[in-house]
């Protein structure tokens, strides 16, 4: 494991903690897209199917459990916790899951490294993760008023993707035969989706103003 991969995982972990902090202590999920969170549950559930069959390290298994557990609990809170659910922007969060999932299923069936069940599911999770943030970005655009925790959550998520790209570049030059086009391209697409958000995040940070997206 290199420093970029570790930094990526830690930013990912931090993003989840920020979101849980907002939901658990402030009892609010305002500005958070349930659609995106449900897509993350599907992403982790399909990617970590191998959790009992393949062992890489204690670190990996532990992180898989954390990401599975946290994504499930976030969705549970937003759906079933009365106080949290009341703050959910249901009318604004209208993105259709199938609209994103169907193309990802088809693409995973067509383009994959190996045609096995686990590999196709893994590939599907990569494609779906690439676009899972879209409902969240759409919701931000609609509500426009973004509180600090929600802004930090998305900033950290984008940071995690950025560090993973550095990790792939590092591994490409240091490990023989490390070539994974599917992972790289979907990862790159995912990171690019954050570009616009990052632009306005830095602008608000530079001007020391509250983050607001243009209509």
């Amino acid at each position: 494991m290199n420093i970029f991969r570790l930094a990526g995982d830690m930013t990912h972990l931090a993003s989840v903690l920020v979101l849980l902090l907002k939901i658990h202590t402030i009892k609010s999920c305002a500005g958070v897209s349930l659609k995106t969170q449900e897509l993350y549950v599907i992403v982790f559930a399909t990617r970590y199917l191998d959790i009992f069959t393949s062992f890489v390290s204690i670190y990996n298994s532990l992180m898989k459990l954390i990401f599975l557990g946290s994504s499930f609990s976030i969705v549970w809170y937003m759906r079933y916790h009365k106080a949290v659910h009341r703050t959910y922007d249901r009318e604004q969060d209208t993105f259709r899951h199938w609209f994103l999932m169907l193309p990802c299923i088809l693409l995973a069936l067509l383009i994959h490294e190996k045609f096995t069940f686990f590999e196709v599911m893994w590939t599907f999770s990569l494609y779906l993760e690439a676009v899972a943030i879209l409902p969240q970005l759409v919701l931000l655009q609609r509500t426009r008023n973004i509180d600090n925790l929600t802004g930090q959550y998305i900033f950290l998520l984008g940071g995690y993707r950025g560090f993973y790209i550095l990790n792939w570049i590092y591994r490409y030059f240091t490990e023989p035969h490390y070539v994974h086009w599917i992972t790289w391209i979907s990862g790159l697409v995912q990171t690019l989706l954050y570009a616009d958000f990052f632009y306005y995040y830095f602008l608000s940070w530079k001007n020391n103003k509250k983050l607001q997206l243009p209509a």
Binding site: D9, S54, V56, M63, K114, E175
Partner: peptide, 10 residues
């Protein structure tokens, strides 16, 4: 080890 290497990532 017939697993693709990227499966050691999260």
């Amino acid at each position: 080890q017939d697993q693709p290497q990227n499966h050691d990532e999260l």
